[in-house]
Write a protein that binds this DNA or RNA. Structure first.
Lengths: 335, 335
DNA sequence: TTACTTTCAGAAAACCTTTTCTGGATGTGC
DNA sequence: GCACATCCAGAAAAGGTTTTCTGAAAGTAA
């Protein structure tokens, strides 16, 4: 049998209202009675039913975070950032994992809605249009993370993927590379990959280099898929002099494949990654990559979501987080 | 203004009870009226308030998962496993991240309690005694994962860390190693590390080898800490011929440190890891390690938690999940 | 037709809090 | 001693849903 506020009231010989007032630190209760209630509270280890409280207050103080998966190393830091500012403002954050599955995605988004979450943060890699429509239709505060959605009607925070990719590829060009391939994310699935591809395109074009379709391969984000894509590239003709990868994991898989067949990095092929996960400095050669702060991503998202919840004015509708190139050992300078 | 079941009832010209019955597929409503309600439901996109429902049903169908962090690669697979069976049985799973912080740990555990979660799964690495007492005191179904708690009163599922470590270290001994160091997790913090250390001790003792305190170093679970511990070991005297590490991440960090100072693995020092994360086959030499199925861990936990929730008889109180040695290139055979 | 059962929808209670409203007791100013 | 304000605690309403209870209408058997 679960203990309720009624039980506490009975045991302390006061009304339920009084108990509630003590729990919520209302000053309008005498110190002797307050102490009596406090004692019972302590003795019973009573925790108020948040469900009932949310119902009457019509406010859950809950922020839902919807992620596709967590293997992706950057998400841990991001959630950490969200947690940090959310807790500061008195919100709790709970996470749901969609497994990258459209049905799950909708299910958990709706769960957050039904749980009366105050707001929702959606990690946008892999997000489907169906979820989009739902977000736009429902009036619950929501922020997208990790994907550049300048064109859309939902506020978002992201790395400026286009610029970052542009800078990375331009660096490769400056090092003398002319035949630069790209291992991008799957076309429809991850929009960050799309934007990184745009940056790649723009950099080549700006340098009057051709963008050749056979030099651009799709790959899922995993190490294994990176290796598979690299194999395809290898088998399809002469090796490019450099490869720009949509994520570090793809790059690591690709480099590993080359190592196994005896191709030397960076002597024969140079590599550029994206994300700066911890393994970039473990593998040999150390991977050059684009670094950004995932926790900052989370903090900006949480901060603005809370503004949205409170009905405050937003300073902007889309924010980006700074990035920088980390040049390490995976790039050869061509004369 | 939020739309409620009352609004739907009014619009369909029926009572709220009838709407509720339609939503919950009660057969006791005529087909013409049902259709009328269904139409309004469709038109309004109404979602019942889960908060109110939980309050009256006294059943949330929610499983809370409390994790220290998610950078640890195995947790993703574990949650995947939990999700899979939970959804099968009609439960939703939400995750909270404690950041390995005692206060957060209690906070989120209590949040799950207050949210009337049907059950809770706690990933036990890093768990504090305060949380323990709380779990034992509250009568809400709970299962511990990832740590061997045979001695405790809370049901748990885990890898048999003692045996697995015993087998790994015994393998090293069979390969001719006599001076085997261990990089274990921090003493109090991670109990899996404790049990893995026990296995290490037992294997040495069984082979009549001494367990020398200066050969056992504590290390947090990260790559960076693994490197730091290895540096300490290196500076404290002659190198051991083999190192058994409590996790792959520690091993990877340690091996990387040796690579940087020019010590050859496995020629000069052999390595054994634990977890079989994806990077074990990427680094050179490929790391020998202990493999187990994290998703199985999650599935067993979820399955038994649901039994507990339903009040069914448990087949056991502690379960273990199978493991196997993955022998790769990080171990030299000594003559 | 009568008496009875069956079908189906509405009324109302219940779930557990918070909060407004009410009113009794006490204190204050004249 | 009276009018009034102040303080504090209890009563009750509210929040949105589910479910039991009730009862009207329709159907069935004699």
């Amino acid at each position: 049998m679960k203990i309720t506020i009624k039980d506490v009231a009975r045991m302390a010989n006061v009304s339920v209202s009084t108990v509630s007032r003590v729990i919520n630190n209302s000053p309008t209760v005498g110190s002797d009675i307050r102490q009596r209630v406090l004692d019972v509270l302590e003795a019973t280890q009573f925790r108020p039913n948040a469900i009932a409280r949310t119902l009457v207050k019509n406010n859950s103080s809950l922020i839902g975070v919807l992620l596709p998966e967590i293997k992706n190393n950057v998400l841990d830091d991001m959630v950490e950032g969200i947690n940090q500012v959310a807790r500061l403002y008195g919100y709790d954050v709970v996470i749901a994992l969609s497994g990258g599955n459209a049905e799950s995605e909708l299910h958990y988004y709706n769960l957050f809605r039904e749980m009366q979450a105050s707001g929702i943060i959606v990690s946008a890699s892999g997000i489907r249009d169906s979820l989009f429509e739902l977000i736009e239709a429902s009036q619950i505060p929501c922020i997208l993370v990790g994907r550049d959605f300048r064109e859309k009607s939902i506020p978002s925070v992201h790395v400026d993927n286009v610029s970052a990719a542009y800078e990375a590829v331009t660096y490769l060009i400056q090092q003398g590379h002319r035949d630069i391939a790209m291992l991008r994310g799957a076309q429809g699935d991850i929009s960050a990959g799309n934007h990184r591809f745009q940056g790649y395109e723009q950099a080549l074009t700006a340098a009057h280099l051709p963008v050749r379709a056979e030099r651009v391969l799709e790959s899922a984000l995993s190490v294994e898929e990176g290796a598979a894509s690299m194999r395809k590239l290898y088998e399809s003709g002469p090796l490019p002099s450099a490869v720009f990868c949509a994520t570090d994991r793809i790059a690591i898989g690709a480099m590993n494949f080359l190592a196994e067949i005896g191709v030397k990095v960076p002597e024969q092929v140079s590599f550029f990654g994206f994300d700066d996960i911890d393994m970039t400095v473990i593998i040999r050669p150390k991977l050059s990559t684009v670094r950004y702060s995932a926790s900052e991503l989370g903090m900006v998202a949480a901060r603005n979501l809370i503004k949205l919840i409170r009905g405050e004015e937003l300073s902007a509708f889309h924010w980006s987080v700074s990035h920088q190139l980390k040049i390490r050992d995976s790039i050869a300078r061509l004369k």
